[in-house]
Design a protein around this nucleic acid. Structure first.
Lengths: 176, 176
DNA sequence: CTCTTAATGCAGAATGATTCTTAAATGAGA
DNA sequence: TCTCATTTAAGAATCATTCTGCATTAAGAG
């Protein structure tokens, strides 16, 4: 199952606009890597994208795939499935509940929603397979991280990062 | 913030019952490891549990923590936060949508739910931080995996795994 | 079309979470 | 009390992912 051509084209247009706006070069490999994610409904991982793209550009490196995927993520053109997760996290709350996840620090908190629990799972889902559980995942930036962000903001504002090093401005993803 | 004593006690009781039912020994370390997860609302990872438990049992090994956590997971006493994820997966669908995830093979598929999209996020969530997105995550076993399961079932049924090697019956988690 | 420099490819190494190995010591529960 | 599941220890292996130089290439501004 693939995404319809028209939709793919629309997504590619967005990529072009976003690249221009961000001042990054739209290379052949970036285009193909994006096209691969944009035309799939499989939610591929880096390696899957790599394998596919290699069919069209035999010399792509896995590095480029990773770098590009994260760049697309930073540009808001693709999203990751599930919260950022450095390691597996466990939960002993067996009652029906939902999660709030901070996309910066990984903070996770439970909350409840009777309104959601009353909802019926769409029938379309049952076509995929059995349903064991359903819960909401809310993503955002927690108060603590928001505060840190402000401090950093103030810092950055004093030394204006002008010029064309925008590509270096993507924050490195943390390692715990 | 910690879970209330009464609730912790209730969870520990469940552990005792489940251990007995499964025929596994309720060791000191298993109890403490479970108690740690059961009393936290932080959704700790293996290392966080390790660090805490080490305060009470200085000789615990990180191995035991991992083994125990997965055993608790297999017994249904704890769950993991987010779907099992061997690697990060990407999604270029920027429209509002939700996910169905197969807990066996990792298959991921999109679906929509106008009913959910119309729901308001509970106010309690806003206390944690800003809200960037909210979506449903449905977990289950996809049809393809369910079929494989049946085949395996048939196999297993012919060679009855009697005796006390139940502890060996937890399927090793796969590596891609 | 021609530069400038961002991006890529390559080879190899590092990292970090997680799992496994082996062998000896321990302790839960019948 | 005895047995066998479990734990520990110490080390190695795996795997996804990221990074380091460095030489090469090509996007896109002018």
């Amino acid at each position: 199952m693939r995404v319809e051509q028209a939709e793919i084209a629309r997504r590619v247009e967005k990529l072009k606009a976003a690249s221009r706006a961000a001042g990054v070069k739209l290379t052949h490999q970036r285009l193909e890597i994006f096209r691969e994610v944009a035309s799939s409904v499989e939610h591929p991982d880096a390696d899957a994208v790599f394998r596919e793209v290699r069919g069209r550009i035999p010399t792509v490196s896995i590095d480029t795939v990773y770098r590009t995927l994260w760049m697309l993520n930073d540009l808001g053109l693709v999203a990751t499935l599930g919260p950022r997760r450095e390691s597996v996290r466990f939960d002993a709350n067996l009652a029906r509940h939902h999660h709030y996840i901070c996309t910066r620090c990984g903070l996770a908190r439970d909350f409840e929603s009777a309104a959601f629990d009353a909802l019926r799972i769409p029938d379309a889902v049952k076509d995929y397979g059995s349903v064991d559980s359903a819960h909401i995942e809310v993503r955002g930036v927690c108060d603590s991280c928001a505060r840190k962000q402000c401090e950093k903001q103030a810092e950055t504002d004093s030394k204006p990062p002008r010029g064309k090093q925008r590509s270096k401005s993507w924050p490195k993803r943390k390692r715990s």
